[in-house]
Design a protein around this nucleic acid. Structure first.
Lengths: 66, 66
DNA sequence: TATAAATGTAAAACATATTTTACATTCCAA
DNA sequence: TTGGAATGTAAAATATGTTTTACATTTATA
């Protein structure tokens, strides 16, 4: 599943490290998610959307996989 | 994280089995999620919201855990 | 250009999500 | 009131997400 985290994080001028701290995860987790290594957990999904000030539905691009 | 799956599924008069098939997961997965045993994966989250015709943000109740 | 900050990446360990099989319980209609 | 459908639950196996440590590469700036 693709997401707009990199785009929105840049727009807000914060580093992966800072976003990671805000969300309570490691920098590598943010990096992996931005680079589509895997999808975040639901908790992290909501944390990311909240900290980036956007709806979950707008942060991720769902392509009817299932 | 709490959710409104049971409520919406009932409103739409479909069984856990049917919702499971619609989303491509096992009945036990739907059951576990309705009963808060664990949170669904992001893919399943979007599948559930789509099949139930509601926004992800409206389907789950986020309580700033992180 | 040199240096620091930011980002990419990898392996091991650990945590969480999902499936399968199987059985018990509850609910509802005949 | 019994029988079938729906739901709850559990253990084992597998898949996926996260952390930690560590190092390499890129990017920005003094």
């Amino acid at each position: 599943m693709k997401n707009r985290i990199h785009e929105l994080r840049k727009a807000r001028q914060i580093s992966q490290e800072e976003l990671a701290k805000l969300c309570g995860v490691s920098r590598q987790t943010i990096n992996a998610i931005e680079n589509n290594k895997y999808d975040p957990s639901l908790e992290l999904v909501f944390s990311l959307a909240t900290k980036l000030g956007i709806l979950v539905d707008e942060l991720f691009i769902y392509n009817k996989g299932r």
